[in-house]
Simulated assay, not measured.
Amino acid sequence: MDLNGKVIVVTGGGQGLGRSMAITLAAKGAKLALIDLSREKLDEAVELCKAAGGDAKAYIANVTKEDDVISTFDQIVEDFGSFNGIINNAGILRDGLLIKVKDGEIVKKLSFTEWQDVIDVNLTGVFLCGREAAERMIKLGIEGVIINISSLSRAGNIGQTNYSAAKAGVAAMAVSWAKELARYGIRSAAIAPGIIATDMAASMKPEALENLTAAAPLKRMGTPEEIGHTCAYIFENDYFTGRIIEMDGGLRL
């Protein structure tokens, strides 16, 4: 796929990794439809994409709400007249041990709310957006690409029962979709980042972040730009589908 002039949706596109990926694609001439919950952050991201050389529009939507997702995707097609790809990036953290014990006493359990909030955004949101993206590409007769942002934690990580389960799920969905949608000319893949220098990483405990960085063979965090470059590779390589690229600097949990 030549990205110049192509319409790409990025969920969670107003900030962090989503915004960086959008800017990378904008520099290749892509038109970005950025979905997020913050108008202020979306407006900033739109201006950065335009400055990079691409067009961009902002959409306020909650990816966990089916009606929101359907109406937003309809509006994107109406605004741009086309639909070529999506990066399912929106995600949240609600870390916690399954059972926390102190001095032999159980002091906390991972709550159902902490479980459900992460599953709703990180897994159900990807399902809804991926489904609506595929439907519109098929209806328009357009060969397109779906990229799900998974994580190194998909293999399982302490304190991330909810997040690990969701990120394993979005990786599996990408492979399933690649097999189902190839007949329509739609490719599907996932990227599993390791520790990337974003606000989400900055929210981690400093000692945990330092230990993870030290454990990576490259001894550093990845950059959002490096993830953006990987997205561009998947879009541009028409023989790539059904695989997960691990962008983790060689780190293994």
Rank of each mutant, 00 (worst) to 15 (best):
G91V: 08
F112W: 15
G250P: 09
A133E: 10
E44V: 15
K205C: 04
A216D: 09
F80T: 08
N89S: 06
A178W: 10
G85C: 06
Y239Q: 06
A58D: 14
A168W: 07
F127G: 14
S20N: 05
K219N: 03
G85W: 01
S203P: 05
K139T: 01
G5K: 14
L17N: 04
I99T: 15
V121L: 13
I86C: 10
T11I: 05
C231V: 00
A172H: 08
N211Q: 09
L3M: 09
M21N: 13
K28F: 11
V118C: 12
T113K: 15
L32H: 04
S82Q: 10
E78L: 12
D199A: 12
A178K: 02
N211V: 00
V170L: 12
N84C: 04
D36A: 11
T223C: 00
F83K: 05
N4K: 15
V69F: 13
M221L: 07
A26Y: 01
L93H: 12
T124S: 14
K219M: 02
I86F: 06
A27L: 05
E226L: 03
G141A: 04
A174H: 09
A182P: 05
I196T: 02
N122H: 12
R243C: 02
A232H: 06
E105I: 08
K28A: 03
T241R: 15
K205I: 14
A214L: 01
A189K: 07
G222N: 03
E236K: 00
A58I: 11
W115S: 14
V77T: 07
I106K: 15
E180I: 00
K139S: 06
G29H: 07
Y233A: 03
N237I: 02
I106Q: 13
E44T: 15
Y163A: 02
Y233C: 03
R19W: 01
G144E: 02
F83I: 11
V101H: 11
T161A: 13
G130C: 08
I147T: 08
G18D: 03
Q75A: 09
E114L: 07
G85F: 01
G125R: 07
D117W: 08
S203E: 09
A214N: 03
E114P: 12
A214S: 05
D67L: 14
I8D: 02
I92A: 08
A182D: 04
L98A: 14
V170E: 08
G144I: 09
N89Y: 12
S38M: 09
S164D: 02
I138H: 09
I99L: 13
D117E: 15
M204G: 00
V46S: 09
A166I: 08
G81D: 11
L32G: 10
D68Q: 14
F240N: 06
T223A: 01
C231Y: 05
A197Y: 03
T223S: 01
N237D: 03
I146P: 10
Y184N: 08
